[in-house]
Design a protein around this nucleic acid. Structure first.
Length: 290
DNA sequence: AATAGCGACAACCGCCGCTCG
DNA sequence: ACGAGCGGCGGTTGTCGCTAT
Protein backbone atom coordinates (compact mmCIF):
# COMPACT_ATOMS: atom_id res chain seq x y z
CA UNK A 1 0.00 0.00 0.00
CA UNK A 2 1.26 3.41 -0.75
CA UNK A 3 1.97 5.70 2.07
CA UNK A 4 0.66 9.14 2.25
CA UNK A 5 3.21 11.82 1.57
CA UNK A 6 4.89 13.28 4.60
CA UNK A 7 2.85 16.39 4.22
CA UNK A 8 0.46 18.00 1.87
CA UNK A 9 2.59 19.73 -0.67
CA UNK A 10 -0.11 22.02 -1.87
CA UNK A 11 0.86 25.58 -1.21
CA UNK A 12 4.24 24.75 0.20
CA UNK A 13 7.36 26.51 -0.88
CA UNK A 14 10.14 24.62 -2.55
CA UNK A 15 13.60 25.41 -3.72
CA UNK A 16 16.26 27.48 -2.05
CA UNK A 17 15.67 28.74 1.44
CA UNK A 18 15.50 32.42 2.13
CA UNK A 19 17.30 33.99 5.06
CA UNK A 20 13.96 34.71 6.62
CA UNK A 21 13.00 31.08 6.49
CA UNK A 22 16.35 30.10 7.90
CA UNK A 23 15.86 32.49 10.76
CA UNK A 24 12.40 31.22 11.48
CA UNK A 25 13.59 27.65 11.49
CA UNK A 26 16.65 28.33 13.60
CA UNK A 27 14.73 30.34 16.13
CA UNK A 28 12.05 27.74 16.44
CA UNK A 29 14.46 24.88 16.92
CA UNK A 30 16.51 26.85 19.43
CA UNK A 31 13.40 27.42 21.43
CA UNK A 32 11.73 24.07 21.01
CA UNK A 33 14.46 21.71 20.06
CA UNK A 34 14.72 19.31 17.18
CA UNK A 35 12.12 16.76 16.32
CA UNK A 36 8.46 16.80 15.45
CA UNK A 37 9.47 17.70 11.95
CA UNK A 38 6.05 17.16 10.54
CA UNK A 39 4.40 19.66 12.75
CA UNK A 40 7.38 21.98 12.92
CA UNK A 41 6.71 23.99 9.77
CA UNK A 42 3.24 24.86 10.89
CA UNK A 43 4.35 25.76 14.38
CA UNK A 44 7.28 27.76 13.13
CA UNK A 45 5.24 29.57 10.54
CA UNK A 46 7.02 28.04 7.62
CA UNK A 47 5.46 27.04 4.36
CA UNK A 48 7.77 24.12 3.97
CA UNK A 49 7.59 20.39 4.12
CA UNK A 50 8.77 18.98 7.41
CA UNK A 51 11.35 16.93 5.65
CA UNK A 52 12.65 20.00 3.94
CA UNK A 53 12.97 21.72 7.31
CA UNK A 54 14.83 18.80 8.75
CA UNK A 55 17.20 18.69 5.83
CA UNK A 56 17.87 22.38 6.00
CA UNK A 57 18.56 22.21 9.70
CA UNK A 58 20.68 19.10 9.58
CA UNK A 59 22.79 20.16 6.65
CA UNK A 60 23.17 23.90 7.03
CA UNK A 61 21.69 25.52 10.08
CA UNK A 62 22.72 23.15 12.80
CA UNK A 63 25.45 24.56 15.01
CA UNK A 64 28.87 23.16 14.36
CA UNK A 65 28.38 22.48 10.71
CA UNK A 66 31.52 23.02 8.70
CA UNK A 67 31.02 24.30 5.22
CA UNK A 68 33.42 23.78 2.37
CA UNK A 69 37.19 23.69 2.61
CA UNK A 70 37.42 19.98 2.98
CA UNK A 71 40.94 19.39 4.11
CA UNK A 72 43.35 16.90 2.68
CA UNK A 73 42.99 14.83 5.80
CA UNK A 74 39.26 14.79 5.49
CA UNK A 75 39.43 13.97 1.82
CA UNK A 76 41.82 11.19 2.56
CA UNK A 77 39.53 9.81 5.18
CA UNK A 78 36.50 10.02 2.94
CA UNK A 79 38.24 7.96 0.30
CA UNK A 80 39.28 5.35 2.79
CA UNK A 81 35.91 5.16 4.38
CA UNK A 82 34.22 4.92 1.05
CA UNK A 83 36.48 2.04 0.18
CA UNK A 84 35.25 0.36 3.28
CA UNK A 85 31.65 1.31 3.47
CA UNK A 86 30.61 2.23 -0.01
CA UNK A 87 27.96 4.87 -0.42
CA UNK A 88 26.91 4.88 3.18
CA UNK A 89 27.34 8.59 3.49
CA UNK A 90 25.82 8.95 6.88
CA UNK A 91 28.31 6.50 8.30
CA UNK A 92 31.14 8.27 6.59
CA UNK A 93 29.87 11.61 7.79
CA UNK A 94 29.72 10.18 11.27
CA UNK A 95 33.48 9.96 11.24
CA UNK A 96 33.95 13.52 10.05
CA UNK A 97 32.90 15.93 12.74
CA UNK A 98 30.99 18.86 11.39
CA UNK A 99 30.46 17.35 8.00
CA UNK A 100 27.13 16.22 6.72
CA UNK A 101 26.32 13.21 4.63
CA UNK A 102 24.98 15.45 1.91
CA UNK A 103 28.16 17.44 1.70
CA UNK A 104 30.31 14.37 1.64
CA UNK A 105 28.12 12.78 -0.96
CA UNK A 106 28.35 15.86 -3.14
CA UNK A 107 32.05 16.14 -2.62
CA UNK A 108 32.52 12.56 -3.55
CA UNK A 109 30.43 12.83 -6.68
CA UNK A 110 31.94 16.05 -7.88
CA UNK A 111 35.54 15.87 -6.76
CA UNK A 112 36.75 12.56 -5.53
CA UNK A 113 35.10 10.40 -8.12
CA UNK A 114 36.80 12.29 -10.88
CA UNK A 115 40.03 12.36 -9.01
CA UNK A 116 40.03 8.65 -8.53
CA UNK A 117 38.97 7.97 -12.07
CA UNK A 118 41.57 10.25 -13.50
CA UNK A 119 44.08 8.31 -11.48
CA UNK A 120 42.85 5.13 -13.06
CA UNK A 121 41.12 3.90 -9.97
CA UNK A 122 37.80 2.24 -10.13
CA UNK A 123 36.26 3.52 -6.95
CA UNK A 124 33.98 0.58 -6.68
CA UNK A 125 36.69 -1.39 -5.06
CA UNK A 126 34.46 -2.05 -2.14
CA UNK A 127 32.04 -3.93 -4.29
CA UNK A 128 33.16 -7.24 -2.95
CA UNK A 129 32.23 -6.25 0.52
CA UNK A 130 28.81 -7.33 1.55
CA UNK A 131 26.45 -4.45 1.52
CA UNK A 132 23.45 -3.98 3.66
CA UNK A 133 20.23 -5.21 2.29
CA UNK A 134 19.08 -1.71 1.61
CA UNK A 135 21.84 -1.21 -0.82
CA UNK A 136 21.38 -4.55 -2.39
CA UNK A 137 17.86 -3.56 -3.14
CA UNK A 138 18.88 -0.55 -5.03
CA UNK A 139 17.25 -1.92 -8.10
CA UNK A 140 13.94 -1.08 -6.67
CA UNK A 141 14.98 2.46 -6.21
CA UNK A 142 14.82 4.94 -8.95
CA UNK A 143 17.96 3.99 -10.63
CA UNK A 144 19.41 6.15 -13.32
CA UNK A 145 16.74 6.95 -15.73
CA UNK A 146 17.23 6.55 -19.40
CA UNK A 147 17.86 10.22 -19.63
CA UNK A 148 20.76 11.16 -17.48
CA UNK A 149 21.04 14.45 -15.66
CA UNK A 150 23.40 15.89 -18.21
CA UNK A 151 21.14 15.00 -21.06
CA UNK A 152 18.20 16.38 -19.23
CA UNK A 153 20.11 19.48 -18.49
CA UNK A 154 21.02 19.76 -22.10
CA UNK A 155 17.46 19.32 -23.18
CA UNK A 156 16.37 21.87 -20.68
CA UNK A 157 18.87 24.36 -21.92
CA UNK A 158 18.03 23.71 -25.50
CA UNK A 159 14.50 24.50 -24.63
CA UNK A 160 15.70 27.77 -23.25
CA UNK A 161 16.94 28.80 -19.87
CA UNK A 162 13.60 29.72 -18.49
CA UNK A 163 13.92 31.52 -15.25
CA UNK A 164 12.42 29.63 -12.41
CA UNK A 165 10.47 32.06 -10.37
CA UNK A 166 9.20 31.39 -6.94
CA UNK A 167 5.71 31.81 -8.20
CA UNK A 168 6.30 29.11 -10.66
CA UNK A 169 7.63 26.96 -7.91
CA UNK A 170 4.57 27.53 -5.86
CA UNK A 171 2.38 26.72 -8.77
CA UNK A 172 4.19 23.52 -9.29
CA UNK A 173 1.91 20.61 -8.99
CA UNK A 174 3.09 17.40 -7.67
CA UNK A 175 1.57 14.62 -9.62
CA UNK A 176 2.27 12.17 -6.90
CA UNK A 177 3.71 9.77 -9.36
CA UNK A 178 5.01 6.70 -7.71
CA UNK A 179 6.80 3.77 -9.05
CA UNK A 180 5.07 0.61 -8.11
CA UNK A 181 7.73 -1.89 -8.08
CA UNK A 182 6.18 -4.96 -6.66
CA UNK A 183 9.02 -7.28 -7.41
CA UNK A 184 11.05 -6.72 -4.35
CA UNK A 185 13.60 -9.14 -3.14
CA UNK A 186 12.81 -10.71 0.17
CA UNK A 187 13.83 -8.65 3.11
CA UNK A 188 16.62 -9.87 5.25
CA UNK A 189 17.63 -8.48 8.54
CA UNK A 190 21.01 -6.90 8.41
CA UNK A 191 23.24 -5.28 10.90
CA UNK A 192 23.71 -1.63 10.20
CA UNK A 193 26.28 -0.01 12.37
CA UNK A 194 25.42 3.39 13.64
CA UNK A 195 27.86 6.17 13.04
CA UNK A 196 29.88 7.25 16.00
CA UNK A 197 31.26 10.71 16.09
CA UNK A 198 34.71 11.18 17.40
CA UNK A 199 36.46 14.40 17.92
CA UNK A 200 39.97 13.23 17.46
CA UNK A 201 41.74 13.59 14.17
CA UNK A 202 43.52 10.51 13.06
CA UNK A 203 46.99 10.77 11.81
CA UNK A 204 47.33 9.04 8.52
CA UNK A 205 50.71 8.85 7.06
CA UNK A 206 49.79 6.73 4.11
CA UNK A 207 47.66 9.30 2.42
CA UNK A 208 45.35 8.67 -0.43
CA UNK A 209 47.00 11.37 -2.46
CA UNK A 210 50.31 9.75 -2.16
CA UNK A 211 48.76 6.60 -3.45
CA UNK A 212 47.22 8.42 -6.33
CA UNK A 213 50.37 10.22 -7.19
CA UNK A 214 52.19 6.97 -7.10
CA UNK A 215 49.70 5.56 -9.46
CA UNK A 216 49.58 8.36 -11.92
CA UNK A 217 53.17 9.32 -11.85
CA UNK A 218 54.47 6.48 -13.90
CA UNK A 219 53.12 4.70 -16.92
CA UNK A 220 54.02 1.21 -15.98
CA UNK A 221 51.65 -1.65 -15.62
CA UNK A 222 48.41 0.12 -15.15
CA UNK A 223 46.48 -2.85 -13.90
CA UNK A 224 49.08 -3.59 -11.33
CA UNK A 225 49.05 -0.03 -10.13
CA UNK A 226 45.32 0.02 -9.90
CA UNK A 227 45.42 -3.13 -7.89
CA UNK A 228 47.98 -1.56 -5.69
CA UNK A 229 45.95 1.50 -5.01
CA UNK A 230 42.73 -0.34 -4.68
CA UNK A 231 44.34 -2.28 -1.94
CA UNK A 232 43.35 0.45 0.41
CA UNK A 233 40.45 -1.82 1.15
CA UNK A 234 41.16 -2.98 4.65
CA UNK A 235 42.28 -6.36 5.62
CA UNK A 236 41.92 -6.24 9.35
CA UNK A 237 40.18 -4.31 12.03
CA UNK A 238 42.13 -2.60 14.70
CA UNK A 239 40.94 -2.64 18.23
CA UNK A 240 38.73 0.28 18.95
CA UNK A 241 40.19 0.99 22.33
CA UNK A 242 43.43 2.08 20.80
CA UNK A 243 41.67 4.79 18.93
CA UNK A 244 39.50 5.85 21.78
CA UNK A 245 42.47 6.34 23.95
CA UNK A 246 43.90 8.67 21.41
CA UNK A 247 46.74 6.34 20.65
CA UNK A 248 45.46 5.19 17.35
CA UNK A 249 47.10 5.94 14.07
CA UNK A 250 50.66 5.11 14.69
CA UNK A 251 50.68 1.79 12.95
CA UNK A 252 51.13 1.91 9.23
CA UNK A 253 50.02 -1.65 8.97
CA UNK A 254 46.61 -1.05 10.24
CA UNK A 255 44.10 -0.92 7.49
CA UNK A 256 45.45 2.33 6.26
CA UNK A 257 44.58 4.36 9.22
CA UNK A 258 40.87 4.26 8.96
CA UNK A 259 40.66 2.68 12.32
CA UNK A 260 37.71 2.82 14.60
CA UNK A 261 35.13 3.57 12.01
CA UNK A 262 33.06 0.65 12.91
CA UNK A 263 31.45 -0.28 16.13
CA UNK A 264 33.42 -2.81 17.96
CA UNK A 265 32.34 -6.32 18.13
CA UNK A 266 32.26 -7.83 21.53
CA UNK A 267 35.59 -9.43 21.70
CA UNK A 268 38.19 -9.86 24.31
CA UNK A 269 40.08 -7.03 22.74
CA UNK A 270 43.05 -7.29 24.95
CA UNK A 271 43.78 -10.67 23.55
CA UNK A 272 43.55 -9.69 19.93
CA UNK A 273 45.74 -6.68 20.05
CA UNK A 274 48.53 -7.16 17.61
CA UNK A 275 47.25 -10.49 16.46
CA UNK A 276 46.62 -10.11 12.77
CA UNK A 277 44.95 -13.47 12.46
CA UNK A 278 42.56 -12.59 15.16
CA UNK A 279 41.87 -9.27 13.52
CA UNK A 280 41.07 -11.11 10.36
CA UNK A 281 38.61 -13.13 12.31
CA UNK A 282 37.08 -10.03 13.72
CA UNK A 283 36.84 -8.60 10.27
CA UNK A 284 35.30 -11.77 8.93
CA UNK A 285 32.82 -11.71 11.73
CA UNK A 286 31.95 -8.18 10.93
CA UNK A 287 31.45 -9.05 7.31
CA UNK A 288 29.14 -11.82 8.33
CA UNK A 289 27.17 -9.45 10.46
CA UNK A 290 26.87 -7.12 7.56
C1' DA B 1 27.26 40.39 -25.95
C1' DA B 2 24.91 36.21 -26.21
C1' DT B 3 24.72 31.59 -25.51
C1' DA B 4 26.27 26.92 -24.75
C1' DG B 5 28.76 23.93 -21.72
C1' DC B 6 29.95 22.53 -17.44
C1' DG B 7 30.85 22.19 -12.41
C1' DA B 8 29.23 22.63 -7.81
C1' DC B 9 26.03 21.90 -4.50
C1' DA B 10 21.43 22.68 -2.43
C1' DA B 11 17.26 20.52 -2.38
C1' DC B 12 13.92 16.99 -3.50
C1' DC B 13 12.14 12.29 -3.84
C1' DG B 14 11.14 7.77 -2.64
C1' DC B 15 12.20 4.17 0.16
C1' DC B 16 13.35 1.85 4.56
C1' DG B 17 13.61 0.76 9.54
C1' DC B 18 11.97 1.78 13.93
C1' DT B 19 8.49 2.86 17.16
C1' DC B 20 4.10 3.03 18.95
C1' DG B 21 -0.82 2.46 19.35
C1' DA C 1 0.57 -9.08 14.48
C1' DC C 2 -0.46 -5.19 11.98
C1' DG C 3 -0.49 -0.65 10.16
C1' DA C 4 0.54 4.26 10.40
C1' DG C 5 3.66 7.90 11.55
C1' DC C 6 8.11 9.55 11.84
C1' DG C 7 12.95 10.17 11.12
C1' DG C 8 16.67 9.03 8.38
C1' DC C 9 19.19 7.64 4.27
C1' DG C 10 20.96 7.53 -0.43
C1' DG C 11 20.11 8.57 -5.24
C1' DT C 12 18.78 11.99 -8.25
C1' DT C 13 17.45 16.45 -9.93
C1' DG C 14 17.31 21.51 -10.13
C1' DT C 15 19.50 25.74 -9.97
C1' DC C 16 23.09 28.92 -10.09
C1' DG C 17 27.39 30.79 -11.46
C1' DC C 18 31.56 30.57 -14.02
C1' DT C 19 34.03 29.68 -18.30
C1' DA C 20 34.43 28.82 -23.15
C1' DT C 21 32.95 29.63 -27.69
Amino acid sequence: MGRSPCCSKVGLRRGPWSTKEDTLLSNYIQQNGEGQWRSLPKNAGLLRCGKSCRLRWMNYLRPGIKRGNISQDEEDLIVRLHGLLGNRWSLIAGRLPGRTDNEIKNYWNTHLLKKLQSAGIQPKSHKDLPKPNKNNNNNKKKTATNIGPKKKKKLKKVAGRADKLDEARNDENENGEQSNNNERPPKTKVYLPKPIRVSSVFSRTNSYDSLVSRTSSSDGDAAEKVAEVVSYVPVAWPPLFEMEEGGYGGDEDDFLGVGCILPLLHHPLDSISGDVNMLDQVYDEYLQLL
